[in-house]
Design a protein around this nucleic acid. Structure first.
Lengths: 209, 209, 209, 209
DNA sequence: TATGAATGAGTCTTCATTCAT
DNA sequence: CATGAATGAAGACTCATTCAT
């Protein structure tokens, strides 16, 4: 009875520890990348901040690139989830709400979004993953845009999506400063984005080709 | 005496040559930074592209950081000039024109603006100069904003300036892709910025506190 | 009692399993060393190919060196057996047969001989066992040589033995290429060795000091 | 006058020093590779033995592989020279002389030949250069063989060449031990090779197909 | 002053070995 | 006794910077 349970829990700590370690490493990487950017961070540094030996870091992330990609992957998944939620609500969702959801993607309490924003930017040319993520963001946004503004050509939707994504990244970047300005800027960006979408929606509805 | 004249003429070509060399080095650095980003560029590479020996590079720019700062400085001056021109025209300048001028700051034919955009972004945390430049940009924009929208509090002007600068950088970043999307995005950003300024101006004029 | 028998039978399979595991590990090591050479093989790799956990590998072979030595030991024993067989047949054995037997020592169907040849070669300076094996080979050959050619001084026998062993290793090395050349080379080496022994025997019989 | 000459000699020491450094590095690498084999040698070790900082080593040899290849190249050139000399003498050269020349290729006063022998052996699979060198050796030997023994088919010449090269390598390997045995073995190998060539020549002349 | 070879601290990464479970 | 995650010393290689010439 208890012995069998013991056995189960016997290895649980090991896996548990492994999970905790991966989490710690990822967290350390996230904060370091967010602080200093990909290139300025050393693997030794990441391991040290996670309180792990360098070998452990490489056990889980066999290269620096893998480490960055892992962060991007995790963010990518959370993006997919978020977009799924947004798209399910279809056209019922009001513009301010939509904008809130979008801006929230790259701006959160944790540093994860900041790290992701940095990595997407700086590794776009070198990491396939970063390029993918950026593309995926654009595609999601473009699809939603076309659903709301039916007359939008796919090319224009793409263009608008680029702009929207840039606005998202702007929000992420401005999250790096002190709270006082940050909140103001965030609000402002939200306002700006609403303005933009309202304009486009109105124009589209007005402009009968 | 002939000796003194000799010295003068002897050094004149040297200075001339020195200037040309500095220009070549700077140009090489600019194109390289624009292409690959600060970290991926080596000093040896810069010297080689400029056709100069590495020692010469260090003669004029005693460190890699100095080199980056020099580029930032030069851009900073051109910004100051541009803003001076804008501010001289006062409130007479129409919003679309103003927006054109602003967006043109970081997006140009030459690679210098691309390099500057990259450097500001990637070295913001490490280089005082990059931070200064960003601050200077903000201040200039804020001043113009306050001149056009008198009721604007200095705090709100600052906030708006941050947004405007982010938009400028977004334009710079989108310049990295192929021409087809680039032009579309650039136009879109211009439109967006006009929308934003028009809105703020109108609101300010309407909102009687 | 049943308990004691239980223990016996309980461990019997374990020992059985242990033997099988050791065999699998050794086999894996042999094939890997033969393929890639000592340095290029990792312990993890050996364990993986044997389908055993790394801990198990270290249970039986406490170091990489031990593992290599074990292979050398096993080959050494098989050499001893082979030489015993040869020596028992005394002088009755004809030269071509003798040569066949010798060349067969390091060239066989299995990879074991190839691995051994590699290990003797590459670890000669670092492993006492490899040196021992080489020495043992020489001694065996020298003894047989002196038995067949009575007038041979021990020093000359040693020298000849070195040559013979080198020829054996040459055969082993040539086994690494494609079958077409290999068979030809092997035949040629056999011929060469016969030539050598015949010459020495004749000379010795002729040369009356 | 003296000034111009001074200028010439002014940089001479620099180049001189560079040459000396390259020589020292190469010599260190040669002796280390000869002693311990390719894998067991570290780049730091090579630099240290040459009395050079690690950076200098990499200045001249951008990778460990390059370093090994450089040694192989140098040996390869000396082989080509030697073979050129041998081939020029055509069929006039007597067998013992030919054998001397061949055995001398991989056995010399310096350690260079020993290092080369080791490198050819251990890096055959990984280094294109090592494989090339081995092939080149075979081809040279085969050509000479066919010139001397006209009836030899190209395939048999190739096979014989393999054997001859193996004999050369055997001589190189036996050079690693103390002088006493070495000289004896070397003589023995020479004798063996003469035996082999004489036999082949005689057989070819006798055997009329 | 100009040059570019020289320098070595610091980077990423591997792998034999150990030990908690 | 079995397991395989954890460890960290050590290796190949880079590059900003210096300094002898």
């Amino acid at each position: 009875m208890s012995s069998s349970r013991e056995k189960i829990t016997a290895r649980a700590p090991q896996r548990e520890r492994g999970k905790r370690r991966v989490a710690a490493l990822l967290e350390a990487a996230v904060s370091l990348f967010a602080e200093k950017g990909y290139d300025a961070v050393t693997m030794t540094e990441v391991a040290a901040r996670a309180g792990a030996p360098i070998g452990s870091l490489y056990q889980f992330f066999p290269s620096k690139e893998t480490l960055a990609d892992a962060i991007l992957d995790r963010i990518g998944e959370s993006f997919d989830d978020a977009f799924k939620g947004i798209e399910e609500r279809g056209t019922t969702i009001a513009i301010p709400e939509l904008v809130d959801a979008w801006l929230g993607l790259l701006v959160g309490f944790d540093e994860e979004r900041a790290a992701a924003a940095t990595l997407i930017e700086s590794r776009q040319e070198t990491s396939a993953r970063a390029a993918e993520l950026r593309l995926s963001l654009r595609r999601h946004v473009a699809r939603i845009l076309r659903a709301r503004i039916p007359k939008l050509s796919s090319k224009r939707a793409e263009t608008m999506a680029v702009v929207v994504v840039q606005l998202m990244k702007a929000a992420a970047r401005s999250a790096e400063t002190d709270r006082a300005v940050r909140d103001g800027v965030q609000n402002e960006l939200k306002h700006l984005m609403c303005l933009y979408l309202n304009d486009k929606t109105a124009v589209a509805q007005t402009m009968t080709p």
